[in-house]
């Protein structure tokens, strides 16, 4: 149930992760697993996409994979 969620997918939460270290889309999705946020897969993808568009993080390739990151 949504009331059991212990993680919230918010812009501030994403910002904190991306300031700490570069992350791939998969890394981010792991931080906001549906079973922890109570969101559906589709909601998670849509909300995370909107947040990333707003944050407009820097991008770099590490080991062939695109990573996002932010500087303070």
């Amino acid at each position: 149930t949504p009331s059991s969620s212990d993680v919230q997918l918010t812009e501030e939460a994403v910002r904190r992760y991306l300031i700490r270290k570069p992350m791939t889309t998969k890394d981010l999705l792991k931080k906001f697993q549906t079973k922890r946020t109570g969101l559906s897969s589709e909601q998670t993808v849509n909300v995370l996409a909107q947040i990333l568009k707003r944050l407009n993080p820097e991008r770099k390739s590490i080991g062939d994979k695109m990573h996002f990151y932010l500087t303070e």
Binding site: T24, T25, K26, L29, K30, S41, T44, V45, N46, L48, A49, L52, K53, R59, M66
Partner: peptide
């Protein structure tokens, strides 16, 4: 499952590719 995670990552990347 990891395949569900893969699908979500692919969907997210597709959304962002339009933007980037």
């Amino acid at each position: 499952s990891s395949s569900e995670a893969d699908k979500m990552a692919a969907a997210l990347e597709a959304e962002l590719n339009d933007f980037m």
